[in-house]
């Protein structure tokens, strides 16, 4: 093994259920319900999943939801914009902490 991440491991995801089958079954029911068409379309949910996959930097999820978004009819342009949304929130989340920095500067500075 020369890396922690192996593409074939994605297909082995169900093995996680071996030592906790009831929890795995509950997870699957919940997961499938989450991605079913509801107030949001399946495509919108796939694009959210794709964006979050980048935010949490999960290579398995990026592979799965790139294919998933295409198979729900998303275009490469829409998918790229979704990743920009995730990236902007990540960047903004760092930057907004600068307010805390400024609070501290004001508290301990002269």
């Amino acid at each position: 093994m020369d890396t922690y991440y192996h593409p074939p491991d994605l297909a082995r995801f169900p093995e996680v259920g071996k030592d906790a089958p009831e929890l795995w079954a509950k997870f699957l029911v919940w997961y499938n319900a989450v991605f079913a068409e509801g107030a949001l379309t399946e495509r919108e949910k796939a694009l959210i999943a794709l964006a979050v996959s980048h935010a949490v930097q999960c290579p398995y999820c990026i592979d799965a939801y790139t294919t998933g978004s295409l198979e729900k009819g998303a275009t490469p342009e829409q998918m790229t914009e979704a990743v920009h949304v995730a990236s902007a929130i990540r960047g903004g989340a760092s930057l907004v902490h600068a307010v805390q920095m400024r609070n501290r500067i004001e508290k301990i500075g002269m």
Partner: peptide, 11 residues
């Protein structure tokens, strides 16, 4: 590409 088509009605 190498993936399945999306929902016909949605497309």
């Amino acid at each position: 590409g190498a993936f399945l088509p999306a929902s016909q009605a949605a497309l």
